[in-house]
């Protein structure tokens, strides 16, 4: 049995999802010869640390009742630097202006020779090249499937499963909130603002929906795909971005009468990175509804491959993190 010692940084929806999935998949991981021990769980107020492994069920219960997992006041970077472990699971909130605490955590992890699995887009959007180089210099694994499309496999699909194929372009819906809003506006013939309010009530849109509805979140995901799959060295500023705030129910209806839906489509190739609302034929593989994400990968040999799945949700995102964990330590 191989023991993987890890720390979980960020204990919001995704961090808790990871804890839950690790508990649920304990026996399965053991069947692969893996024992995963979490030596620290960190949230914005502090951390729980135990070099022998914390009790994840306890952490989840404490978070639910006390609102924090913190038992001591120690930062993520301090834990990475002082507690011996193999893997940093980084699920702190995305900050695309500074990279936030996530960037600090990742750099500290590589500097101390640890592997990193993350769902946090910010650092990858800002400092992809630097992070990759630091990871490489340290001989660390760095995986981030969960940053794009939640549970839907896309980075590992293009780089590993489709290995040998040149990827020509990727097009798709990479933001579930926008997809939900556009789908519901058409269904209800309701205005953008009405459906946005509904989405907030349901927790599908955040209180500040700017990242999602202005296309920023989609653009960040395209930046990650451009760097990780197309080998480019680009940042958010290289993306041509238009969001969905101007889309009207009348436009959706007129398009629908002519056999089209309007979707926020992200598109990336070596030549261009682009986010905008587009007309999609209703029988097109990218015309999925609700909060679903979808991506079509245009390949050199395999033709077009389309994947669709849940783009958000704690357990779904944790599933991508789990698959990265197994990819690193499973063999």
């Amino acid at each position: 049995m191989k023991t993987v010692y890890c720390s979980i940084h960020g204990f919001g929806a995704i961090g808790q999802g990871v804890a839950e999935v690790l508990l649920r998949k304990k026996e399965y991981l053991e069947s692969l010869g893996l024992e995963v021990k979490v030596v620290a769980v960190v949230d914005s107020k502090g951390a729980t640390v135990n070099p022998e492994g914390v009790d994840l069920a306890d952490c989840l219960a404490r978070k639910r009742t006390a609102g924090t997992v913190a038992l001591e006041s120690i930062s993520g970077v301090e834990i990475i630097q002082s507690v011996d472990h193999d893997l940093v699971i980084e699920t702190t909130p995305t900050n695309i202006r500074t990279g936030g605490v996530g960037l600090q955590n990742m750099l500290a992890a590589f500097q101390t020779g640890k592997d990193v699995i993350t769902s946090n887009k910010g650092p990858l959007t800002l400092k992809y090249r630097e992070l990759m180089e630091t990871a490489k210099a340290a001989g660390s694994h760095f995986r981030f499937e969960a940053t794009v499309g939640g549970s839907m496999p896309i980075i590992n699909l293009a780089n590993e499963v489709l290995a040998g194929n040149k990827i020509k372009s990727i097009k798709g819906i990479l933001n579930g909130t926008c997809n939900y809003i556009l789908t519901r506006m058409l269904e209800e013939r309701a205005s953008y603002n009405d459906i946005l309010a509904e989405s907030m009530q349901l927790g599908i849109a955040e209180t500040d929906p700017t990242y999602d509805v202005e296309g920023i979140d989609t653009a960040c995901k395209l930046v990650i795909l451009a760097n990780a799959i197309f080998g480019l060295d680009v940042t958010y500023n290289d993306v041509d971005v238009t969001g969905i705030t101007k889309v009207t129910p009348e436009a959706l209806e007129m398009a629908y009468e002519r056999g089209h839906v309007i979707k926020l489509i992200g598109e990336v190739s070596k030549e261009r990175i682009h986010v905008a609302p587009r007309l999609v034929p209703i029988n097109h593989p990218l015309a999925v509804g609700g909060t679903l994400n979808v991506a079509s990968v245009e390949t050199e040999l395999a033709g077009e491959i389309t994947v669709t799945g849940k783009g958000a949700g704690p357990i779904e995102t944790a599933s991508a993190i789990l698959s990265d964990l197994i990819a690193i330590y499973g063999n």
Binding site: T242, V247, A255, K263, E267, A276, P277, R278, L279, P281
Partner: peptide, 11 residues
């Protein structure tokens, strides 16, 4: 004006 183009057109 927001211009919404078909998906198969190079925007």
């Amino acid at each position: 004006l927001l211009m919404v183009l078909p998906i198969d057109i190079q925007a």
